[in-house]
């Protein structure tokens, strides 16, 4: 077992923190978007560079991917990837309350991605007494299957990553999207010390 693996308590603690953040984020989103938002129990797994692209690849073709970096105190940082299927991007204008044609589809994708990422991570950060900053979201590609390509480019920077997958569903608008948080090896040990501190309090 790698030294970077989370132990059972750490895993449980992280899962619970994420669940609570998910709940509060979906509440905030529901109020903002004025519709019921379902966030499904995320999967947390440790992946190494070589298998990461394979685990991401099991999904059907993504029509668009938006990437947004995040960084907080205590060396907590990573990258959020928002993965959309083509039928999802058609719903965004409705969901955000835009007039048809008011915004380009790309801009809508960027907008909703930023909202989903920052809402969730802000709540998550506040639970661990942290505060997040964000880089501007970037559209990686609006066609083909660039997820694996993008991830392969990332692999130069890390050997191991923590992968957290969260699925958003807005049933009234038949809108779904996956948020994948990738936390690089160097940040994992920082997260582990934060988790240990929380666990010590109990």
């Amino acid at each position: 077992m790698s030294a970077f693996n989370l132990n059972e308590d750490q895993q449980d603690c992280l899962q619970e923190l994420i669940n609570v953040a998910m709940g509060q984020a979906s509440d905030q989103l529901a109020r903002y978007l004025d519709t019921f938002v379902d966030l499904r129990v995320p999967s947390i797994e440790q992946v190494d560079a070589s298998s990461l692209s394979i685990t991401l690849n099991d999904k059907t073709l993504a029509s668009a991917i938006v990437s947004q970096g995040f960084f907080g105190y205590e060396g907590i940082r990573g990258e959020a990837l928002l993965v959309y299927q083509s039928q999802d991007s058609l719903q965004i204008a409705d969901l955000l309350g835009y007039e048809p044609g008011e915004l380009s589809e790309e801009e809508q994708l960027i907008d909703i991605s930023s909202i989903l990422t920052t809402t969730f991570l802000n709540v998550f950060a506040s639970q661990i007494d942290n505060q997040m900053s964000y880089s501007a979201p970037r559209l990686l590609s609006a066609s083909q299957n660039p997820l694996v390509e993008h991830v392969e480019n990332l692999l130069f920077h890390w050997d191991l990553a923590l992968k957290v997958k969260i699925t958003y569903r807005v049933t009234d608008f038949s809108f779904n999207c996956d948020m994948i948080l990738l936390i690089p090896e160097s940040a994992i040990s920082n997260i582990k010390s934060v988790l240990d501190r929380i666990l010590e309090e109990f």
Binding site: V20, M22, G23, Q24, S26
Partner: peptide
């Protein structure tokens, strides 16, 4: 006691 706090 829940994390899912939406009114529904």
């Amino acid at each position: 006691i829940s994390a899912d706090i939406q009114p529904e």
